[in-house]
Structures are given as structure tokens and as C-alpha cells.
Amino acid sequence: MSLVTGASRPVFLLLRFLRGGAVPMLSLVLLALVGVFWLLLGDRIVGVGALQSMAFQLPELGILSLAMMVTLLSGGLNLSIIATANLCALTMAWVLTTYVPGAHGLMWGGWQVIAVLARVAVASIVGLINGFVIAYLGVSPILATLGTMTMCKGLSIGITRGNVISGFPDPIVFLGNGTVAGVPVALLIFLALCVPIAVLLNKSPFGHKIYMIGSSEKATRYSGVDTRRVLLGVYVLSSLLAVVAALVMMARFNSANAAYGESYLLVTILAAVLGGVDPFGGFGKVGGLIMALILLQVISSAFNLLDFSPFLTVAIWGALIIVVTSLGVVLQNFGVSRRSV
């Protein structure tokens, strides 16, 4: 590389840094954005209050995106996460509001544990249906989860007649609105999920199998991996993550409904892809996803402070993913032509 001398060397290093993956690229974009917003808003965007409010808003979308990401990595898609989350939230809400107010002492806590178990059971069933239909019957993931999404939502609407169930015991509400040393509990839950998921994906045989299936399911099966069982696991895992999201969501609103958070569905795909997850599967890291989530949250918070319409934020989110992906393509092309020189 005798060409890389003098003034072009920093440029070259920057390019290499940016081509390193989603995290460096996104952190650069984030830095630039925070700089701009800081000039516009001053301390309001980097102050403690702003950070805390961002930390309250991020986990819902964050956990749902994790649920989406796991399936994206395996080359699939899970459209039913929101519907599953709402169905679980309603199941739990029903147990909580029916049994907890009348119970005392040990049973007061007991019913809450039962409520959590009930929702885990519901989510596992949905996950198993998804996994079975996709892995064993060979239905394409979009369709299968579209079906379960409509079914779960239909079930939620049918049972509640579209009404809201609200009024939960304090420990549940604390999960959504409480703080520990100034850090929202919801954020702690999110981080506590990220670490095991990252380890599971990158360090365990199960995780490696997910990545391999995402790259080529056929090749993985011919290498002696029971891909069907792994896929079943993936969709159950995704459903279980949706349960946690449901917990955080219902705790924050102190209510549950069949239609909460529906606008998040496509945004979770957006966040995952922005974070460097390949929509066709096989590539992507939890770190990239977290970066993408922070980026989206900073934009949304700053626009809120600037008094822009929330719909404009949505438009900017859409534009952002196109810009970032095109940057990646342009850089790659630049790198190729450079190497060929």
C-alpha cells in the first residue's frame, strides 16, 4: 500500500475503522448527532434529566428488538412479538387483578409469581406454535408469524373486547417506573437481558448454530445439526423475550391492552437492521443493536425537546436507515476500488 502516504493516511484509517462493522459507524453518527443537538439544545439533551427519560423509554423497544433480532439472525422474522407480548400482559393482568387484591400475606406474593408463570406458559405455547409451524412444517417465517400475530391479537381482543385492564400491585409497577440509584429498573432489566443473550449468541453452541442456520440452513443441516430443533428454540426464545418486554410495558403504563405498542413492530426490524443485523440472517451483534437503539432514542428525545412532531421522528428514523445502509454500500465500493488500484 505505497499509495497510502501523507495526507491520505488518516482518511484511509478512518475508512478502515468505518468498515469495521456497525458499531464504529453508528458511534460516529451518534457522536455527530449528539454534537448537533448539543449545539441546538445545550444541556437539555445531555443533562441528567434527559438521560434518565431516555433510559425510561429505551428498554421497551430494546427488549422487543432483541426478540426480533434472535429470529432475524436465524434468517427468519417474528411478526408476532408485539401480539404475544400483549396477550401475555393480558394473561398476567387478568391473574393480577382477579386474585391479588383479595389475597394476603404469602398468597399475595404467591399469586404474583403464578401470574408471571402463567404468562411464561402462554408465551412458550405461542413460541412452540411458531417454531413448530416454521421448522417442522416448513412455512416461511413471515407467514407463520403473521398468522400467529393475527391469532394472538384476535384472542386478546376477543377476551377483553378491546378493553384495558389496569391497576397492578406495587412490585409490578416498580419494574416499570422505579429507579435504583437513579437508574431506571427497566433499563437494568434490559441490560441484564443483553449480556446473557450476547453470551448465548456468541459463546454457546446454540448461538453458533443460530448464526450458521442464518447463513445457510441446508449446509447446517448437512453438517449434522438438528436445525429444526434449533429453530424451535429460537422462536421460543423470541417469545420469552417478548414476555419480558410485556412485563416492562404493562408496568410502565400500569395497564394492559390488546393494541399497545403496535407501532413498534416494524421499528424493531428497523433497529435491528440499523444495528448491523443482516435481514437475511447470519450476521449481527447485540452491541450493534444497542448502539442503534441509543441512536434512535437520542433522535426521538432531541426532536421531542425541539418540539417537532413525533411523526417527523418516525420519518427521520426511516431516512436514517437508508442513509446508514447506503453509507455502508458506498464505503464498501470505495474500499473495493481502492484495493483494485
Binding site: 409451524v133 403473521l146 393475527t150 391469532m151 391479537k153 384476535g154
Partner: peptide, 13 residues
């Protein structure tokens, strides 16, 4: 919606 979902799921399966 529940019936629609069930139909989709059954049909594709």
C-alpha cells in the same frame, strides 16, 4: 381477527 389468524395459519401450514 382470531378466526382470520387461524385461517391464515392453517392454510399456510
Amino acid at each position: 381477527q382470531w378466526f382470520v389468524g387461524l385461517t391464515i395459519l392453517c392454510a399456510v401450514s
